[in-house]
Nucleic acid binder design. Sequence first.
DNA 1: ATTTAATTATGACTATTGTCATGTTATTAT
DNA 2: ATAATAACATGACAATAGTCATAATTAAAT
Lengths: 234, 234
Amino acid sequence: MGEDSTNQHKNCSCNTSTVFKSLNTEEQELLNSKLRCNSYKKGDILYREGSRITGCYCIQKGILKIYKTGVDEKPQIIALARPGDITGYRSVLSNEMACTTVEALEDSVICYIPSEIIFTLIKKNSDFALSLIQLSCKELNQANDFIKDIAQKTVRERLAEIVLMLNDTFGTDTEGYIAINLTREDLSSIVGTATESVIRILSEFKSEKIIELKGKKIKILNKERLKLISESIF
Amino acid sequence: MGEDSTNQHKNCSCNTSTVFKSLNTEEQELLNSKLRCNSYKKGDILYREGSRITGCYCIQKGILKIYKTGVDEKPQIIALARPGDITGYRSVLSNEMACTTVEALEDSVICYIPSEIIFTLIKKNSDFALSLIQLSCKELNQANDFIKDIAQKTVRERLAEIVLMLNDTFGTDTEGYIAINLTREDLSSIVGTATESVIRILSEFKSEKIIELKGKKIKILNKERLKLISESIF
DNA sequence: ATTTAATTATGACTATTGTCATGTTATTAT
DNA sequence: ATAATAACATGACAATAGTCATAATTAAAT
């Protein structure tokens, strides 16, 4: 874990992140004075399920995978987080042990925000409190939607859906490939299936000219078709 | 839908419900003055997915089922709510259309709380705001746990888990039967499986002397065994 | 009370998905 | 550069769970 701390937060993503947009100048400064940025290498663990955390994390740069550990240590990825996203706020606000493990998927720069400042801001600024409620409500709704999908859709349909989600969330590089590197194993633990199933279905999509594959990189060739598959219409 | 409105809220469950416990006397009175209780018959719909709601609902008496509609109109039950629980707050706070349909599972008495009062209380009382955040975070964590389970466990394991959850949440009647009447179809749309699978596995549990069945009623005979099954140990 | 509808139950069959085995290709480390 | 490891790929098979059919039972409605 990098101890590459900085106090240079003039253009920290925390300031533009949606939850913090309701802060006034004074509150922004208070926030900035308490922040501490750290660098993490690919594979580094920010915190583990069951450990006590004393603040939350705002991503400046990089991508995090957030997962719960299930039967036989099998991870279930609950979310991926990108710059501007915050994580850990749930455990901080409920004053409970971390309910997920958070790991850097690539080299990242993460801002640490101590618990106290979060509580202070909630007390001071009801709009900030409302933003936090709205954030957790949004995540709750996404989680409920995914429960519905995982319960009702086939693996093929869910994988199509996840590929579309990745495309929307992380965008594409200059060549049109989705800008995130996930192993087939990571993908399988998002979709909720076996690694071999992901490999097989991606190959199917490829031979059906719906996607193109280059190593871990995925490029969507036929978005409409992929959408139809994800909606159980195909 | 019952229009059996009352203004008698001295002992409305809203006052004891966990989210409202942080209100002071003045705020309690403000809340009570705005409440409106209605009676609903079994099968009545409080609101439908996609409709605009202008307040949230606190259960005085009865049980509600909260579901999302999936492929082929198939419902996926996201939660069951019992006296003291509130529902609809998510859509109210995010100012979005309802993302679930809510239906009375039995004759119920439900308190309607207009949106404005919720927003007012968030502004006035940061502890109330915090309670709301904690509530949604708790539900979020439960949803994420369920994603993990539905992705990794077998139907048999999940059904065992749900029976245990129902027992803990709704308690038992004088004869020891779980105090909720769910059809096998309802159960299947909680567990995320086919109705026939629920029927079959409940019959298995019965012949293994793990549960006892009397119509829709379920009595747990061997809680330890059921727990082991739910944890994929059996 | 009796018809009607809904729910529960079970068998037979099919489809989907997971597991295991094995080989190949990328990555990473020395 | 080369060994070692991790990731990808594919086939064969097994297990889990879904669908369809049909009957019995229970609950609801007139």
